[in-house]
Design a protein around this nucleic acid. Structure first.
Lengths: 192, 192
DNA sequence: TAAAATAGTATCGAGTCGATACTATTTGAG
DNA sequence: CTCAAATAGTATCGACTCGATACTATTTTA
């Protein structure tokens, strides 16, 4: 009688494949691959501790060699910018270029999703979201993968005042906008 | 305040990518790619109207040329069998070979998923499943894609007696086991 | 201070994927 | 009834992913 989790797996898999196929269609017109859009979405969301090739590789679940090539392509197309870290001169920092920003903006397929979920009760969606989120965290912690969440769900995040936060891991102050970016070192608070 | 559908999109996307990465790890040990496992899973579930290259291409969301090459690889490895259709001699029929069956059996990653969802309430999962299923059907019908569902959710399926069913589209009798396979011509009944 | 660890790049080979061109059948319009 | 159009599939090309391996350049640590 534990069939539902498996059904959920199949649904997520199928939906994921459809999204990927749709993505391929959309980005293909720009001569890109799905993974390039994934990378740009990540760079758009990554905080200043997480905008490196290594971090991206972990997020995508590929090796650093593979990510290096994809970054080369994105660089060639002028969609990202790379610059060296001032402190640790081994690490390269990444950010979207203005052109990359612009292209990402044009590619957001969220409206299709909106219409696909229009007739589903808000409550059901809310439940779906919690189930998926919990599963995601479980699955990630299970096989030692990073969770890449935002600050307000992280155990290291401390609120100092109305507008300032503090990261206990990096021992640095965080601005409000920064707390809404995803972080490589994110550790989720226990669910309740 | 319609943020939840987009959050759901992001979660499905992320989960899908993780599943894909995990899949790559597992099938990579056999020298295969994720798409090969997807294909084998499909062939394992496809009914006799749907076990063709064209049908598989539609399921995977790739062109027939692409699928043709993946099938060649699966054939080379002895994981599938191809045979010509008796009636229409243009079409090729596909099935898993005994070796393919065996490999598929060994690769099912459902147990990981089971443990990842162990602590989530059955009710929440049930709601998640319905939300995902509805979204899937919507999304598919929206962009004209096939739904690839099973008979008992299809408008063409008529129950004749306790054990026999009838497909109004193909005008053929269906055995009980057959009604649990996925079909290329599936049209979902309206949800309620 | 020298060895180990870490971040990244370069290169190779197998495979995906779309595009295009092709063959072989079946369908259909006149 | 025939010939053109449609359909199912294969072949080939080029750009790209992806893992593996080997490499360089820094930083850490013993």
């Amino acid at each position: 009688m534990l069939k539902n989790p498996v059904v959920m797996l199949q649904l997520v898999e199928r939906l994921g494949n459809l999204i990927r196929a749709e993505m391929r269609r959309v980005v293909g017109q720009e001569g890109l691959q799905p993974v390039h859009l994934e990378a740009m979405l990540f760079l758009n969301q990554a905080n200043r501790f997480s905008n490196t090739p290594q971090s991206l590789a972990e997020f995508l679940g590929v090796t650093k060699g593979t990510v290096s090539q994809s970054l080369m392509l994105l660089d060639r197309r002028g969609l990202i910018e790379r610059y060296q870290d001032e402190v640790d001169r081994r690490v390269v920092r990444l950010r979207l270029s203005p052109l990359g920003d612009q292209m990402l903006e044009a590619m957001q397929p969220a409206s299709l999703w909106q219409s696909a979920t229009r007739n589903i009760s808000a409550n059901r969606i809310r439940n779906g979201v919690s189930a998926l989120r919990e599963t995601l965290y479980m699955l990630q912690s299970y096989n030692g993968a990073r969770t890449f969440g935002v600050c307000n769900t992280c155990i290291y995040c401390q609120r100092k005042s109305q507008r300032t936060h503090h990261c206990a891991l990096f021992a640095e102050r965080l601005s409000g906008p920064e707390t809404r970016l995803v972080c490589r070192e994110h550790v989720p608070k226990a669910a309740n």
